[in-house]
């Protein structure tokens, strides 16, 4: 899933400063699951913004709404009348959602309320960790199911580096050394010989190195 975190309130207050009527828009997909932009957070932010405004002696009209997915045009289409009634939109979706809104409602200012962080997995209640950087050429099949690109600070293809001590990365004791994890996993799988294979230098073109990427399913595409 795509993970995100709310921007500092100060930044958001600044965005909406010129406006009187705001549509605060949640998304019921990834950002709900990572507790950043679902109905609950929409409510929290609406209240926070309102208070900040009140404190500075003004007030703002905030309409709260959450749709199924902000990254799909059909869902976004349904917002037309609501957006009409607003001076600006503050989107609590990931960057994809924000752009979808901006694309569709060209004359309406749209602001992101979140910082989109990474593609990650849920470790336990309230904790999400980065797992994928969308390199477009998945290596997990040869690295024992552990991604050296998203989980090694240096993105080493043939690790570990000298900074790995007792299984931890030198950047922080809280970060596991991905290559230690890979080694441990290969050992469990009885595939340690695979560790000796040299992974060639990565071709980053699939990972966005040659511009914005697109997927076209010819059978589906209209």
């Amino acid at each position: 899933m795509i993970t995100a975190e709310r921007k500092p309130l100060e930044e958001l207050i600044e965005y909406i400063k010129p406006f009187k009527r705001i549509l605060l828009l949640g998304c019921n997909e990834c950002v709900t699951v990572c507790a950043a932009g679902g109905r609950k957070e929409v409510g929290m932010l609406a209240s926070g913004l309102q208070m900040a405004r009140l404190k500075s002696g003004t007030s703002v009209e905030i309409q709260q709404h959450t749709i199924e997915r902000q990254c799909d045009p059909e869902y976004v289409e349904e917002l037309a009348s609501m957006i009409d009634g607003a001076d600006a939109v503050l989107s609590m979706a990931c960057g994809c959602g924000v752009q979808q809104i901006a694309m569709r409602y060209k004359d309406k200012p749209v602001f992101p309320a979140l910082n989109t962080k990474f593609m990650g997995a849920s470790e336990r209640q309230g904790v999400w960790a980065e797992r994928c950087q969308g390199c477009g050429d998945c290596l997990l099949g040869i690295t024992g199911g552990i991604c050296p690109i998203s989980r090694c600070a240096k993105q080493l293809m043939n690790g570990p580096c000298g900074g790995s001590t007792t299984g931890k990365c030198e950047i922080s004791e809280d970060v596991d050394c991905a290559w230690q994890l890979i080694w441990d996993r290969l050992k469990t799988l009885g595939l340690t010989e695979r560790y000796l294979d040299i992974i060639p230098a990565k071709d980053w073109r699939t990972g966005g190195g040659s511009g914005p990427r697109k997927i076209i399913r010819e059978d589906l595409a209209e």
């Binding site: 997909e29 709900t32 699951v33 679902g38 209640q125």
Partner: peptide
């Protein structure tokens, strides 16, 4: 209809 199946309640 509102549920995002996020599992937060399951864990809570």
């Amino acid at each position: 209809k509102l549920c995002a199946a996020c599992l937060i309640c399951v864990r809570a």
